[in-house]
Amino acid sequence: MSVVLVVCVVVLGVAALLLVARISLGPTMLDRVVALDVLVAVVICGLALEAAVHRHTTTLPILVVLSLLGFVGSVSVARFSPGSDDVEAEGS
């Protein structure tokens, strides 16, 4: 089981690094939002992996909260990004 832990931690670490690269490179704000959403999912995967390897359920509620958190963040940024036509402030 510890082999699985090491392999998955390395894989998730590389995924997180790629996402941080996209966040820093991302030309537009929406690229960063997409990358942050995937980063939250990688964090959820990491937490679930840790709970799986050590076989405890203490961190399960955090998974639920995190899965909603990523969604609320990206939706609110998408809602108020410049150019989407339903922003009243822009209309006036």
């Binding site: 590389v14 995924a15 996209r22 999912a41």
Partner: peptide
């Protein structure tokens, strides 16, 4: 698969 998602996003 999470790695694939990250590579795709990049």
């Amino acid at each position: 698969l999470a790695l694939v998602a990250a590579i795709g996003v990049l």
